[in-house]
C-alpha cells in the first residue's frame, strides 16, 4: 500500500527539481498541474469525461491481460467501434427513434469485437502473435476512418472538412448540464467496472482465464480450452474499446473526424497495469491518467511549459509507479565483491 505513496512522493521531488532546473517555480507548476484543473465544476466534468473511456477500455483489456492475451490494439477497436456506431447514427431511418442510442452502443461493441475477432481467430487457429496483429490492425482502422471521412461519409454541407455530418440529438448522450460536456455514458463505465470485478473475481469463466494466465499447463490439465481464453480476452477488450469509441462519437464529438481519440486505446494499457489488472485499481489509475492529460494541457496553456516537458513529467510519474510495483515483489541486495 505504501508503494503508490512513495512513487508519488518521488515524482513530486524529481518533478520539482526538473521544473526548478528549467526556471519554473516548482510549487506553482505542481499546483497548476494537479490542483488547478480540479478547481472548477468544468474541470471535474472534464476529468471524469476523460477518465471514463480510459477506465472502460482498461477494464476490457485487463480481462485479457490476466490470461496473458496481449491486446494492444484497443485504439483500433475504439476507432472501428466509433465508425460502426456513427454509421448507425447517421443512416438509421428514423433519426428521432428512442432506440437509436442503445442500437449505437450495440453497434460500437460489435464493431470493436469484430475488429478484435480478427486477431482472436488468427491466434486461436493459427497461433499468430496477437500483439503484432492487434497493433497493425490499429493502423488499418485509422486509415479506414480517414478514407470514410474524406470520401463516402463526408458531410456534403461540411465545407469540405474531412468529417461526417453531426449526429441527431437522439443519437447522442445528453449532457447532465449543457454548460459541461460530461454525459450519461459514464454510467456505462460504472457498470463495466462492476462487471469486470464480477467476472475476474467471482465468475468461473474468469477463474479459468486466470488459470490460463498463471499456469497454461494447469489449464490444459484441467481441460480449460486455451482458445476460449484467447477469444474472451480479445473480445472483452474489443467490446470495451468499441463502446468507448461510441461514447466519444455520441458524446463530446458528435461526428467522426480523422482524429477521434487522443490515444485512449494506448493509455488504457498503462491504466490497466497501474491498476494491477484489478477493477478498483483501474478506476484509480484511470482518474490519475486523466488528471495527467488535463494537467499537462493546463500547464502548457497557463505557464507556457513545452509539450515535451509535460510528457516527460507524466513519464516520470508512470515510471515511478510501475517501478514501485516491481519493488514490492523484488528486493535489491548488495552482493559482496568477491563472489
Amino acid at each position: 500500500m505504501a508503494a503508490p505513496v512513495v512513487a508519488t512522493g518521488l515524482t513530486l521531488v524529481v518533478g520539482s527539481l526538473l521544473f526548478a532546473a528549467l526556471g519554473y517555480d516548482p510549487l506553482a507548476t505542481l499546483q497548476a498541474f494537479f490542483i488547478a484543473p480540479l478547481n472548477s465544476l468544468n474541470g471535474l466534468s472534464e476529468w471524469l469525461l476523460k477518465a471514463s473511456p480510459l477506465i472502460l477500455i482498461a477494464c476490457g483489456l485487463a480481462v485479457g491481460f490476466r490470461a496473458n492475451v496481449w491486446n494492444i490494439g484497443a485504439e483500433g477497436q475504439l476507432i472501428v467501434g466509433a465508425i460502426a456506431a456513427c454509421g448507425v447514427g447517421l443512416f438509421y431511418p428514423n433519426p428521432e427513434s428512442p432506440i437509436l442510442l442503445p442500437l449505437m452502443v450495440l453497434a460500437g461493441a460489435c464493431g470493436g469485437m469484430a475488429w478484435a475477432a480478427i486477431p482472436a481467430f488468427l491466434r486461436a487457429r493459427m497461433n499468430t502473435n496477437e500483439i503484432l496483429v492487434t497493433l497493425m490492425l490499429t493502423y488499418i482502422a485509422t486509415l479506414l476512418l480517414s478514407w470514410l471521412v474524406h470520401g463516402p461519409w463526408r458531410d456534403p454541407a461540411g465545407f469540405n472538412y474531412p468529417q461526417t455530418a453531426l449526429l441527431s440529438a437522439a443519437a447522442m448522450f445528453e449532457p447532465f448540464d449543457y454548460a459541461y460536456r460530461l454525459n450519461a455514458s459514464v454510467f456505462i463505465t460504472v457498470v463495466a467496472v462492476f462487471l469486470m470485478w464480477l467476472f475476474t473475481d467471482r465468475s468461473f469463466l474468469g477463474y479459468k482465464m486466470s488459470v490460463s494466465g498463471a499456469a497454461p499447463l494447469a489449464a490444459r490439465y484441467a481441460g480449460f480450452r486455451e482458445s476460449s481464453a484467447v477469444w474472451i480476452g480479445l473480445l472483452a477488450g474489443g467490446a470495451a474499446a468499441g463502446v468507448a469509441g461510441m461514447a466519444e462519437v455520441a458524446g463530446p464529438l458528435g461526428q467522426l473526424s480523422p482524429q477521434i481519440s487522443p490515444g485512449y486505446g494506448f493509455a488504457a494499457i498503462i491504466v490497466a497495469f497501474i491498476g494491477r489488472l484489478n477493477a478498483f485499481g483501474i478506476v484509480l489509475g484511470g482518474l490519475l491518467m486523466s488528471l495527467l492529460f488535463l494537467g499537462g494541457e493546463a500547464v502548457q496553456m497557463n505557464l507556457g511549459l513545452s509539450a515535451a516537458l509535460t510528457r516527460i513529467f507524466q513519464g516520470i510519474l508512470l515510471f515511478f509507479l510501475l517501478a514501485a510495483d516491481f519493488f514490492i515483489f523484488y528486493r535489491l541486495r548488495r552482493i559482496p565483491e568477491h563472489a
Binding site: R202, S203, F204, Y207, A218, Y221
Partner: peptide, 28 residues
Amino acid sequence: RGAVPPHALWQNAVLTAHRTGLVRNGLV
C-alpha cells in the same frame, strides 16, 4: 500442472473439483 502456483488452495480446489457443485450460476 497439478496446481496453479500463485493461487490459494481453495482456488486450486476449483481447478478440477468445480464439477462437484463449486460453481453456481457461473459464479465460483
